[in-house]
Design a protein around this nucleic acid. Structure first.
Lengths: 304, 304
DNA sequence: ATTTTTAATTGGTATTTTCGATTATCATAA
DNA sequence: TTATGATAATCGAAAATACCAATTAAAAAT
């Protein structure tokens, strides 16, 4: 049996893949450029294959090299987890936990969540990161993040998920406008172009449109906001109506406004909230406990 | 950041766990006893925890040590897979594939399967192992086997599975006896204690009894056989009736006998055939192709 | 033409790994 | 009680390796 590749060399490869430059990668690993260079050559010899194509000035990862990087990432992160686990004496609720959250969820859960986790698991070091779904998924894959709190349905690529709960959408509008619309909501009574939404980078836009059966509706205004708080301000200025998730309302986003929230048409106008993680993780138990904490904060908890 | 544990030391730990003896473990790893001993100590220092309790003569793995072994196994096998993958230039259908099969499936698929795999993937080295479900699951966990072909439903512990297809049970009896029973089968017309089954180590016994709704029936004979071929011989000797899976009949197990097969009572008298693998594997693609080959050999193919 | 940037190479040093021999401890047999 | 055998830890020397600084080689930028 040939010798296993060393974790050190694999980590050199990962750094090189990330930096795409020997010097920077070497600095990243706190070794000299020559060390990293020969480490990579060493690895190629051991694996008996070409990982990068060199052209005397620059280089390129081969297809096989890219795949080796993928697998190496899993191995390195599993090793890091083992190290951390053992050093924590088997206490799974200890050490850093890097959680990524999309912007239409983050502001309405992180306050309560970090307080509750701090109380229950004081040694857990929660590191939050707010970004779009696509960026978060990329960073999860990279090993830069451990778990993601996303709105579903969504293509989560090769990852696994737990559905934590449901978050209903509410139609939010000025109370004067609400009177002319009445309940149940009849979108036809709204003026054309009077529904404002977030930029399409935010998955909530798609979810709200789908959930409320408004695809291609003339009612929608082409101007898009970058945050829920902007949307609320616009609605409060009588510019029109918008959709706001229940969790934002529960957190008081409508306080000090003249806005009211109505139940939209369609019996299931809601998004699912899910926790997403790599299938190769060895920290399911840790994640599960965090999942339970998050689920308790949601408008509708469906975690079984 | 503290240094990652070396794969070498982790493999020493695994060997020690398997052999429960420093000398044998060292021999297993092709190193001296002192090397292995200090490797373990080294690992304990790096992980900053006690993995084994020593009492100057013998030793015992601590609870934490056992858990570290579990995680280390995943890391080592992922590394082996990476090595193998890269050395095979990314060809996933190459090198050894260790497949475990239960005795009530093995004889009826391995002939065709190994022939087909040999034809399609000549570089794939299929290594078969026949054992009971429980032993196979243990060996899968150990990293001793890569995938298992089992009959389901079954507790497959933390593993993952694909359902490949269905295998109906048939009631098999001597043609003279069959005349007195008639169709549809009425078990009441069979003499008491005239149904013979396999030893209870074989999961097929439970599956057949459940599928045909015969729990605690007075019709069953307490004598149990160790193989399907024995059962068939007994039925042919007019000792009674028995259940035989369709795949065995398709393979001609009833040839040169005076036996007939009848459809048992109960609309779903069948077992599922599933392929089971570790959730941490990185060879899903390889396994999937094997799964497809196996599914094609089953009486009812349900692999989607 | 010169300088800068990049990765590979070289040669020497420091570190780590490994082994064989030895020691210490215990269980068991004589 | 004293040998004997088995075990795991320890020690010191030897071998393997990992690492760095300096250099080279090639290309790109100035």
């Amino acid at each position: 049996m040939s010798k296993l590749p060393s974790l050190k060399n694999l980590s050199y490869l990962l750094a090189l893949h990330q930096e795409q430059n020997f010097n920077r990668a070497a600095a990243e690993c706190n070794v000299s450029q020559s060390t990293l260079s020969s480490g990579i050559q060493n690895l190629e010899e051991q694996l008996d294959c070409q990982l990068i194509e060199r052209d005397h000035k620059s280089f390129l990862f081969t297809a096989l090299g890219e795949e080796v990087v993928e697998k190496a990432r899993d191995i390195i992160s599993a090793s890091e987890e083992l190290l951390h686990y053992a050093q924590g004496q088997g206490n799974i609720m200890e050490g850093p936990l890097r959680l990524g959250i999309i912007p239409t969820i983050a502001p309405f859960v992180i306050g309560e969540l970090s307080k509750n986790l701090q109380d229950k698991f004081p040694k857990l070091l929660l590191q939050l990161s707010e970004d779009t779904t696509q960026n978060l998924l990329h960073r999860l894959r990279n090993g830069e993040l451990d778990i993601l709190l996303l709105a579903l349905p969504m293509d989560i690529q090769g990852n696994q998920k737990w559905i934590l709960g449901r978050d209903p959408f509410k139609l939010v509008l000025h109370k004067d406008l609400a009177e002319t619309v009445g309940e149940p909501v009849d979108y036809d009574k709204l003026p054309d172009r009077s529904i404002f939404l977030l930029e399409k980078e935010h998955c909530m836009t798609g979810h709200a449109v789908a959930a409320c059966q408004l695809t291609d509706s003339i009612k929608m205004n082409p101007f898009t906001a970058t945050s829920l708080h902007s949307l609320v301000q616009m609605a409060d200025a009588r510019l029109g109506a918008t959709f706001v998730p229940q969790m934002a309302i529960d957190q008081g986003i409508l306080e000090n406004t003249a806005l009211v929230s109505l139940k939209p048409t369609g019996q299931e106008a809601s998004r699912d909230i899910g926790l997403v993680y790599r299938p190769t993780t060895s920290r399911r138990q840790t994640f599960r406990k965090v999942a339970e904490e998050i689920a308790r904060l949601l408008p509708v908890n469906t975690l079984n």
